[in-house]
Design a protein around this nucleic acid. Structure first.
Lengths: 268, 268
DNA sequence: GGAATAGTGTCTGTAAGACATTATTAG
DNA sequence: CTAATAATGTCTTACAGACACTATTCC
């Protein structure tokens, strides 16, 4: 039997169907606080609940790849054009396919992680009643940080777990890649870059040491000759301006402080 | 409309079907050489070609999760029982869904990466004409290493790319996790551990510095009181025996030497 | 002037890498 | 004995983190 004969006989509908979706964990920083893009679901299941933006992957639909589908979902909810999307970092996060995670049928969800500079207020896409940038700290899943009970927005499906995985990936990626610059505009100052690290890692960094370290990593940033027009909001000299360099990995890396714990012990 | 009403109306077959497969990049070390598990396909498409072991995910099939499906595929091709599988490390590698990657239909493939100690010779599973442990160097995709042309076994589908991603992931994981121990038995010597690193990274390491460094990382290995029964094959004292410690991350990490290059430059 | 901030200098402990050295075993 | 190897010691350089300090700007 040749491949051609086989294909002629092959019936794709001979098995129970499985649906594939693409979900996006889109992160940005607004006013120094890390935000994630959430939509309020318009339709069942979980109608009215908050969820990550996403949608089904159609088999045909212009023969669209998974990454393209994720970019499209992101664009639909943010109103970003292809040009503005060029400055957004988008990478695959993982695939979630536990049985029962969607009550309708077996659904395999490919999650993507996006970092972008401060983006415009979202507009609700087709399947959403509402779309907002939500501060991640208010979702009650950043480590052990306690918060007022009752304010937690529970996310639909297993999206809380996906978001937690995305946050951990983002925190780790800042250590050994220059992706922190993806949260900023084309030019930025070292203190602005430090603010990104502090927002994502959730802890303050030593300004002087951070400054010296960033400049010591080859290819992380390259100086434009300019400085900011004014000093800091509450005083201080004008800061020099930089743009992202050509490094794809930071060497040496900027390791998170304090994480000496929780890298021991097996899961019980 | 409540969730229940919606579910009653919902027709999963109203869209073009998409198939989901699970493929496994299973790595082991035999005689100091890194090997990958390959099968020779018995059926079209790509009948007769070598490919990664894998199979379709059925919607029902005992409500099996993706990871469980990968473990089952691995067990089928290696003859491993659940007990022996317990010592195998298995993690999700990535998901591949480019249109046209399978000529039959739209197929989304979730790839898993497995590390195991020297495993028995495989037996062909249901869909395979043959199954072997193949040295990865003979597949002509380890970086720029040249080899005699014509000896390359071309892999089916996009499996060469998946394998390349798996190898890079494996090399990176050895840097900051203790997973090298997954390639060894329960007890091992430091020189055996060094041989794992040399096999996966493909370059020799300095014996003395490696030894001191491994012992300096908290939780990487813990000594049993014992030593090997005899010295090295060509002389030398008996080596002390260790087993894996309780660390989940290596701190500080064991960085690959020489990779000062290729971390610059954008993709052109 | 006072306070806040950008950027640099200094010091200390730790770690990586190159190399040397000792001790133990196979042949 | 000789060669090979396990394990430890020494030295140099580099870097992380703590801290001090200067210069510049806002209010």
């Amino acid at each position: 039997m040749t491949d051609e004969e086989f294909l002629a006989e092959y019936d794709p509908r001979s098995y129970d169907p499985i649906a594939v979706t693409v979900d996006v964990v889109a992160l940005t920083i607004r006013d120094g606080v890390l935000h994630v893009l959430l939509i309020r679901r318009a339709n069942p299941p979980f109608a009215g609940s908050w969820a990550l933006p996403g949608g089904f992957v159609r088999a045909v639909e212009g023969e669209e790849g998974l990454r393209e589908a994720a970019a499209r979902e992101l664009a639909e909810e943010t109103g970003l054009t292809a040009g503005a999307l060029g400055r957004v970092h988008l990478e695959q996060l993982g695939t979630y396919g536990a049985p029962g995670r969607d009550p309708r049928m077996r659904v395999i969800s490919v999650a993507y992680l996006a970092f972008g500079p401060d983006l415009p207020d979202p507009r609700a896409g087709s399947d959403a009643a509402e779309a907002v940038w939500a501060p991640v700290d208010a979702l009650g899943l950043t480590s052990t940080a306690s918060q007022a009970p009752g304010t937690t927005r529970r996310l639909a499906f297993d999206h809380a777990g996906i978001l937690a995985d995305g946050l951990e990936r983002a925190r780790a990626k800042l250590e050994y890649t220059p992706l922190a610059t993806a949260f900023l505009g084309e030019v930025f100052t070292i203190p602005e870059l430090r603010a990104v690290y502090e927002s994502v890692w959730g802890e303050p960094l030593h300004a002087g040491n951070f400054h010296r370290k960033v400049l010591s990593v080859p290819g992380f940033v390259e100086g434009t000759g300019d400085t900011t027009a004014t000093g800091g909001r509450r005083g201080g000299p004008r800061a020099r301006l930089y743009r992202a360099g050509d490094a794809r990995l930071l060497h040496p890396a900027l390791l998170r402080p304090g994480s000496e714990d929780d890298l021991r012990q097996e899961t019980p």
